Computed example of a mutant assay.
Amino acid sequence: MEHVTTSVSGAAKFSETSVSSTWGAVPLAGRPTPDEAFKYCAAISAGHAENFPVASLFLPEEKRPYLQAIYAFSRIADDFADELDVSPGERLARLNDWETMLVDSYNGRADHPVFVALAETFYRCHVPLEPFSDLLSAFKRDVVQNRYESFEDLLSYCRCSANPVGRLVLMVFGHRDEEIFKCSDAICTALQLTNFWQDLFVDLKKNRLYLPLEDLRRFGYTEDLWRRGVADERFRALLRFEIDRTKALLYDGAGLPSRVERELAVELKMVWFGGMAILRKLERRGVAPSSRPSLAGIDKVGILFRSLYYNDLSRYGRKKKQWDLT
């Protein structure tokens, strides 16, 4: 489209090797059309296994390409931050270049397919630049920070790493209400925390520990025990504590689906139930170096059923008190 112009500064900074080796897609030759760019982003979305759906078939077809563009931008940036065989300085340089290309695309100049798709997303959906910049700040933080002293420190990370994604999804659907954003923030933070607890031992190879250090001290667990893969009673008590806090955040956002259109509501409920299912698996089985809870096919069928059946998420999974007759 004519409002997307060529950016000389953009794609030249990313060779085919630097991008494709990160996530496996093959860059297009030359500047792609918007349709080609959206197909490129859709391939990235389809090629990564996630706990939670990315632009599923329950969403209106005309909205999916924009969500896939947002996901592709985030996926590649996250992979840049996680390239352990690349120096921290080089990883930050790649993220800085990615940010330059982001700003160019916001101004309608793009060559890389992800940013051609994002330029269309900015133009068609009127989404702001800030949530994307917040995401990049979180990815940069991953490069330079691998410990969090307090739960509040961890929440500050989630405010940039997770919450912008939910807000962008809502903006694509035309929502701008701050109260709706607050519900979304609670769910997105809970999902990010769920992923942290799920990957506690997977993150050993990155030397990233997302359990707040103050909580380790509270439960008598240590970094040395974590590095040795010890999942003893102290660890289990600590994990239960974090799971309870994470569930509380999910319930804080439980009213979100009822405040949006049905197509988006089903998707949001699938995400919500997916997070809750992982937390319940963590409660029952815990996590260990040889055991990472994940969603099986039967779990996903149950999530779909509950997403279509349940309307009041705030009551799901909560035991009724004896005097509660509702």
Rank of each mutant, 00 (worst) to 15 (best):
T326R: 15
K321Y: 01
Y106V: 01
N107A: 03
R315W: 00
L211G: 01
D252L: 08
L250C: 09
K320P: 14
S133A: 12
K320M: 14
Q322G: 03
I298V: 13
D215E: 14
D35G: 01
G108L: 05
A237M: 11
D177K: 09
R75Q: 06
L250Y: 15
T22Y: 07
L170D: 06
M1F: 03
T17S: 14
R228K: 15
R245F: 02
A37C: 02
S161H: 09
E36D: 11
N195H: 10
D199G: 02
F241N: 14
R259T: 09
D177A: 10
T22L: 15
D79M: 05
C125Q: 13
D78V: 02
R64Y: 07
Y66W: 13
E152V: 13
Y221D: 11
Q198K: 15
S294N: 10
W98M: 10
S307T: 04
P257V: 03
G174A: 07
L209K: 02
F139N: 04
I243Y: 01
M171P: 07
S314T: 12
A254D: 01
P34M: 05
E283D: 08
D153E: 14
P212M: 02
S150G: 10
T121K: 02
K206W: 03
N146H: 15
I303D: 06
R167P: 06
D177N: 14
G30Y: 06
K39N: 12
K269D: 10
F122P: 04
G174K: 04
L325M: 12
G24D: 04
H126K: 15
A11Y: 07
K140M: 14
E263I: 00
F241Y: 15
V266R: 11
